[in-house]
């Protein structure tokens, strides 16, 4: 993948992620394409509060991307949910190869404030994506989506 193709792929990926995040936040996504050995990063800067029907929580997103078959694939990531008031981490999904080349879940001390929701929640496992995270926040943590058609947007290829 040459530099032009890499940047085009990064732009497509950023647009997809922004579309997903726009369901729950109006904050910016920022990304950068790098030239050697190829790849990009993408993040939602800082922790952004997202509206809920209960306790306020915040979401942060960071991904590192690598070219594969003409597209950019996520190979390292952090999706973090924190208690907005106490700043304590509730849960987070990490992937950081080569030591842990699979998504894994961390449950933080902030989970104590939301333990009832965690008991009810169907936390995704396996190949967890950002849309998976958004879906569980809306369905199990009372996050209010900004669009009525959020499910259709979430699953749009």
């Amino acid at each position: 993948m040459n530099q032009g193709e890499l940047r085009a792929a990064a732009r497509r990926r950023a647009a997809q992620v922004h579309r997903v995040l726009s369901l729950v936040t109006d904050e910016w996504v920022r990304w950068q394409a790098t030239s050697d050995p190829g790849g990009a990063w993408l993040e939602l800067p800082g922790e952004r509060r997202i509206g809920t029907s209960g306790r306020p929580i915040a979401l942060s997103v960071q991904e590192t991307l690598s070219p594969s078959s003409g597209a950019l694939v996520v190979f390292a990531a952090r999706y973090t949910i924190v208690d907005f008031e106490t700043r304590r981490e509730i849960f987070a999904y990490h992937r950081h190869p080569p030591r842990l080349d699979r998504m894994h879940l961390h449950v933080g001390s902030g989970a104590g404030q939301l333990i009832a929701a965690l008991h009810r929640a169907h936390l995704p496992a396996g190949d967890v994506s950002l849309p998976d995270i958004i879906e569980v926040l809306v369905e199990d943590f009372g996050v209010r989506p900004l669009r009525a058609d959020w499910q259709a947007v979430l699953r749009r290829p």
Binding site: A33, T34, W41, Q62, S66
Partner: peptide, 17 residues
């Protein structure tokens, strides 16, 4: 897993791998 290491490393893009 060190937050300060991750916060820099993920900006490496493809060089992370």
């Amino acid at each position: 897993e060190r937050d300060e290491v991750w916060q820099v490393a993920f900006l490496l893009g493809g060089a992370f791998k």
